[in-house]
Design a protein around this nucleic acid. Structure first.
Lengths: 152, 152
DNA sequence: ATCGATATCATGGGGCACTATGGGCGTCAA
DNA sequence: TTGACGCCCATAGTGCCCCATGATATCGAT
């Protein structure tokens, strides 16, 4: 199945390298790519990563975000200026750059989280916190919908 | 019969594997799949599982949401990061991952419970407790309805 | 209906391949 | 020289494929 799903956390070794989960790697490779791109996530302390098509997809999303705001250009610049290319070594590892650490707070471990068409890289604690918050918001929302529908 | 019905509890072996009930398996396999999609239930200490089309079904609902609303991001994160594929081995077993144990408390046995379009995986004790509670709630509800209808 | 043959299922275990992780050693540039 | 980075190899642990066993159900012939 060629989707990014689930989450795994891997260790950063003494040389600053971390293994990209084999499953994620194979998705990139079967898509015919050997390159990995990472961009700062817009609203989250995480990195969005994936194949080269990730860039074009994000551009599209930016375009439709708010055509009148001049921040669109700024955003585009912001994303692309620091976003970059991650080299996979022969064993499927990437070296964690300062760029990644700054935005995410990543230090000794990285949580890789699937996002269907791409994946994210998190500091494990922040990932867990976000996960809990999301669950809570969704649970609350569904509870409200049930109340309105008359199901208790 | 292509519906998930009834419940069975199976053992986890020394290697962390558990057999998916043959009846459930056949439903998945006749649909042409060799893996399961499992999701951590929002309200229950259980996993919702089914064929990969379960995820597709959820994804479709995602499409109808406003893509820029926070809920959409939350849903996507929940579906893709809090869920994953479980591979069926040649004998119809899956290996129970930490991902599953954390959320459900599953340790040595798994209760598979049919839920019509999909099924659930529980810790046997929690399943039993939940079942008792549900039955009690239903009985209570019926009692109330009878009172209102004048039947005693 | 009885009894034996056959199929299906849950469970156990062997063993190979792959993965994550650690580390060595050159190269190249500051 | 020193340190960052590329490429290579080693190893422990895990996942996955295959086969075995006993229990249960199914079926057929007598």
């Amino acid at each position: 199945m060629n989707r990014f799903l689930g989450h795994v956390t891997n260790k950063i070794d003494a040389k600053g390298r971390v293994s990209v989960p084999a499953h994620f790697r194979s998705i990139i490779q079967t898509a015919g790519h050997t390159e990995l791109y990472a961009l700062r996530s817009l609203h989250l302390p995480a990195l969005d990563a994936g194949g080269p098509e990730l860039l074009t997809r994000f551009d599209k999303r930016l375009d439709s975000e708010d055509p009148f705001a001049e921040t669109s250009d700024d955003m585009s610049f912001y994303l692309h200026a620091d976003g970059g290319f991650l080299k996979l070594d022969g064993d499927g590892r990437i070296t964690v750059t300062d760029f990644m650490r700054e935005h995410t707070g990543i230090s000794s471990d990285v949580t890789f989280a699937g996002a269907n068409t791409h994946f994210q890289m998190w500091h494990p604690d922040k990932f867990e916190a976000h996960r809990a918050k999301v669950r809570q918001r969704l649970a609350e929302k569904r509870r409200q919908e049930n109340v309105h529908a008359g199901n208790s």
